Amino acid sequence: MGFKLLSKLLVYLTASIMAIASPLAFSVDSSGEYPTVSEIPVGEVRLYQIADGVWSHIATQSFDGAVYPSNGLIVRDGDELLLIDTAWGAKNTAALLAEIEKQIGLPVTRAVSTHFHDDRVGGVDVLRAAGVATYASPSTRRLAEVEGNEIPTHSLEGLSSSGDAVRFGPVELFYPGAAHSTDNLIVYVPSASVLYGGCAIYELSRTSAGNVADADLAEWPTSIERIQQHYPEAQFVIPGHGLPGGLDLLKHTTNVVKAHTNRSVVE
């Protein structure tokens, strides 16, 4: 069995187990497998329904001669939608809004960016022009300005110390501490036991640490421990890039980060 097929099978099995364990909360999309990078042309966006009122959005972007996937989250909030992270750029984010209108038909009224990198804030200006209120932590807003990236308009308070959590509509926002970046936030959907790890969490097929220019490698494993301790009931975990899975993604990420750190020390 090929690795790609095995990865998709694991996603399907995880979703099936969740649907059985929580039949009222989960209505997993039966329309197909989780979209992969090879299936999404740059400039297009796919939506994948995880649970009743919960979707991931998947886009792709060219970077350094390669094409990478990027995940975000959409959560229903009454007759409105909360968006977590842009679709990595203005063109993708405009396509995301169009796809949401086509498939869901509810307005996106608020959006949260989970850290300051372009795959999370690139497209904020498109959201703002569409009347979406954009939010991020003060740290993310400051770092985005320093980096020359787009800056969300509103500040999220109460997320300055490791372990801080605040309720934001249908989700809980959690600051686990520094990891992929010093400002990275985690998003949890309690009604569906869905954990969105953003770039602080890796997919299972990833074996290298990737972009760690703004990471705190020493603190990252401790931050992941905080996530595990705060959300032990999480059933569906979405990484910032690639295929979702279960809580095993947290341990896998820790292993990859520690291996990278150990290699760096040896070198």
Results as ranks from 00 to 15, higher is better:
1 M>D: 01
172 E>W: 03
44 E>G: 15
3 F>G: 09
156 L>F: 06
212 V>F: 06
15 A>P: 14
32 G>C: 06
182 T>L: 13
46 R>I: 12
135 Y>K: 02
130 A>I: 09
194 V>T: 06
18 M>V: 14
26 F>H: 07
201 I>E: 02
253 T>S: 08
140 T>C: 05
23 P>F: 08
14 T>S: 08
165 A>R: 14
130 A>T: 09
54 V>M: 04
70 S>K: 00
116 F>H: 03
9 L>W: 14
4 K>W: 04
182 T>R: 12
236 F>Y: 06
237 V>M: 01
20 I>T: 10
146 V>C: 07
29 D>K: 07
174 F>T: 02
133 A>V: 13
134 T>I: 02
67 V>W: 11
215 A>T: 06
139 S>W: 11
175 Y>D: 03
210 G>Y: 02
96 L>S: 00
114 T>C: 01
244 P>K: 04
249 L>R: 01
102 K>M: 14
192 A>W: 05
83 L>V: 09
215 A>L: 05
186 I>W: 02
118 D>P: 06
82 L>C: 03
185 L>C: 04
122 G>M: 09
54 V>T: 06
157 E>C: 05
154 H>S: 11
77 D>G: 09
56 S>W: 15
247 L>F: 09
15 A>Q: 06
198 G>P: 02
71 N>C: 01
41 P>M: 11
15 A>F: 09
78 G>V: 08
100 I>A: 07
46 R>V: 10
228 Q>S: 14
43 G>V: 05
199 C>K: 00
240 G>K: 04
79 D>A: 10
111 A>S: 13
24 L>Q: 13
23 P>W: 14
204 L>W: 11
238 I>A: 00
113 S>H: 13
16 S>H: 15
26 F>S: 14
234 A>I: 09
76 R>F: 06
88 W>A: 00
138 P>M: 08
32 G>A: 10
208 S>K: 10
168 F>V: 07
105 G>H: 15
93 T>M: 01
199 C>D: 00
74 I>Y: 04
12 Y>K: 15
110 R>N: 15
167 R>E: 12
115 H>F: 01
239 P>R: 01
222 T>S: 13
61 Q>W: 08
172 E>A: 04
111 A>R: 04
233 E>P: 04
14 T>K: 06
239 P>N: 02
132 V>A: 07
4 K>Q: 05
161 S>H: 14
159 L>R: 02
100 I>H: 01
63 F>C: 05
122 G>S: 07
121 V>H: 03
256 V>W: 02
199 C>Q: 00
145 E>P: 06
32 G>S: 09
117 H>M: 00
